[in-house]
Design a protein around this nucleic acid. Structure first.
Lengths: 80, 80
DNA sequence: CTGTGACTTTCAGTCCGTC
DNA sequence: GGACGGACTGAAAGTCACA
C-alpha cells in the first residue's frame, strides 16, 4: 500500500483540490487574509473561502483573476 | 526589441485563448472530430465547439473532463 | 463536420448574518 | 480571521435548429 487514499497509486487528485491547496499556500506566503485576497482579485470574500474549501466549481475567467492577484499564471494554480 | 511577435512583449493571452488553442491541437493530434471529443468527455458537441471558439467561460469541472479525455492533466490545457 | 444565436435549467457568485 | 447557512441574481451548463 503506497498510501491510504484508496488502493491505486495513480489516484487523481481533483482539480478543485489542487487549486484549493495552491491558493491557500500562495495566499499565506503573502501573509494575506481571505478578505485581502478577495479584494485584490475583485471577488467576494465568501467566494474565495468556498474555493479554498473546494465547495465551488470556479469558472475560467475568475480562476484567471485569482492567478494574477496571486502573481502567477493561471496554469500554475492547477499544477500539483 | 525583445522579441518579434508583435509590439509588446508583456501581452498576456487570455486563459480562454490558451485553452482553445490547446484543445484544438490535442484533438487534431488524435484525429478526432468535435463530436468524438464531446463523446469522450461526456459533454455536448456544441459545447465543445463553443469552448474551441472561446465563446464560453468554462468552469473547472468541465475543464477537467476535457483534459482527461485528451489524456493530459488539467493544468496542461492552460499552459501556453 | 463545424459555427452560431437562442433558449431553459442549474449553479456560480454575492451578500446577509451567525458561530 | 475563518467556517458555514440562507436567499437572491446573473452567468454557465446543456440543448437545439439552422447556416
Amino acid at each position: 500500500m503506497v498510501s491510504s487514499t484508496g488502493g491505486h497509486s495513480k489516484k487523481r487528485i481533483s482539480a478543485r483540490a489542487v487549486l484549493a491547496t495552491n491558493v491557500v499556500s500562495l495566499r499565506r506566503e503573502k501573509g494575506w487574509s481571505q478578505e485581502a485576497l478577495a479584494f485584490e482579485c475583485g471577488l467576494h470574500r465568501t467566494f474565495v473561502a468556498h474555493v479554498e474549501r473546494q465547495a465551488r466549481n470556479i469558472a475560467l475567467d475568475n480562476l484567471e483573476k485569482l492567478a494574477f492577484a496571486l502573481g502567477v499564471e493561471p496554469f500554475e494554480l492547477l499544477r500539483p
